[in-house]
Design a protein around this nucleic acid. Structure first.
Length: 115
DNA sequence: CACATGACTGACT
DNA sequence: AAGTCAGCCATGT
């Protein structure tokens, strides 16, 4: 299966934003979707994350969680615990698959777009 | 082609 | 406050 060129645009934007996430910060699918102008297409952001596995370069998909700071996509990583481990390695505290102090480490893509 | 599912979210009840 | 519904749209059956 191959990603259409039309979708590549969307994917590219998502990847670019996620790569901009500073270490020790996280963001949500909705925030990215909103930044792209399609706030209701957060599912598509998750879809893009799924496609991120094809990327050869390291991709911090673990820095993208749902709006509750819940690691809903951890099962899609190489290891069910990989996501949590990487987050903890960056200084986050995970409890019950949820990022403690999520609001404090939340990073809004718009912060980088607005000057 | 129709229906169900999913790395989601916001609104409504 | 907690549960339900409705948008979203690609993919799988």
């Amino acid at each position: 299966m191959k990603i259409s060129e039309k979708h590549k645009d969307f994917f590219d934007s998502v990847f670019e934003i996620v790569r901009l996430i500073p270490e020790g910060r996280v963001t949500s699918y909705g925030a990215i979707a909103k930044c792209l102008g399609t706030p209701k297409s957060s599912r598509m952001v998750g879809w893009a994350m799924n496609a991120s596995h094809k990327l050869e370069d390291p991709f911090p998909a673990h820095r993208v969680v749902n709006r509750n700071g819940l690691l809903t996509g951890k099962m899609h990583f190489s290891s069910p615990t990989a996501m949590q481990e990487k987050l903890e390695a960056e200084g986050h505290v995970i409890e019950n698959d949820q990022i403690i102090g999520y609001a404090q480490v939340f990073w809004d893509p718009k912060d980088e777009l607005i000057f």
